[in-house]
Amino acid sequence: MALISIKNLSIGYQTKGGLLKAVDNISFEIEQGRPLGLVGESGCGKTTIGMTLMGLLPDNARILSGSIDFQNHDLTQLGEDQWRKIRGKDIAMIFQAAMNALNPVMRVDEQVIEAIVTHKPGISPGDLDKRVKELFDLVEIPRIRMKDYPHEYSGGMKQRVIIAMALACNPQLIIADEPTTALDVIVQDQILQEIRSLQMIMDTGLIFISHDIAVVASVCRDICVMYGGQIVEMGTREEVFGTPCHPYTKTLLGSYLSLNNEWKVIIPTMRKAPDLTLKSGCCRFAVNCKICSNAGTSGIPSWINISKTHRALCCSEGIIRKKK
């Protein structure tokens, strides 16, 4: 059984220009112990999904339709009080540390303690101390640095503390939102290994949100490619990155420079940003899709199964099934 299953979820932001559909009719499931990656460019709705799973959407956002089943609850129906019991305990989030995610005037260990005490108010001081030390050991921060302030930490250490905070209550699902984006490549690699090994040890569910294909590929076993609020292709890591089918996935992969095929780079031609105010169900990629505009298709995409696990959302079955 899936740990969390999202069905036909749509989320909109109320803006001056009308309702903006940041997430349009997406469905996916996460199995325990099987990291799932959400990849896509900025503004494609990755973070909106992450925030929805934490119940932390901004005031002008609304869940328009769909359901999120987690532990026999529909998360879309929860009130703030119920959310507070789940947040940090059952579902935790790893934020980007570079963005001031730690309170600058609080000692680091206090911030971790806070994460534990909130959900275990009756914990004894001895147990609490033991747990905090355990967490710092787990993320490999020396115990003598526990009492420091965030500004005394390096970017990598801050990221580790944020991971420790997320793990504090042994959550069942962890949402990692661009956890390595602002780190340099070496630290990035260390943090990724950390996340990978901790995920395996604790056997939790993990959603990894990033625009960086390489990072997602190194952590996740399942991949969802997003564009303009829609999931356009999903499958296992090997399927999506090995035999991409959707034109957008191909463009995305084509924009990725690699050392061995640097002369074969396809320069992606993306002329327009996706129109997020479009009616639900329309293909958001159509404005940029060469094949689609040439073929004159309906513009209403449907899911096309390529294998048992691999499928793509497109207007034309021919495009998807076409061999390279």
């Binding site: 934490m54 932390l56 959310w83 507070r84 019991k85 789940i86 947040r87 940090g88 305990k89 935790a92 989030m93 934020f95 980007q96 963005m99 001031n100 995610a101 730690l102 309170n103 600058p104 806070e114 994460a115 909130t118 959900h119 944020i162 905070m165």
Partner: peptide, 14 residues
């Protein structure tokens, strides 16, 4: 508007 406020919310604090 700071990120640590979101972090605090994400911990489930009141």
């Amino acid at each position: 508007r700071e990120d640590y406020i979101i972090t605090a919310r994400a911990k489930g604090l009141s």
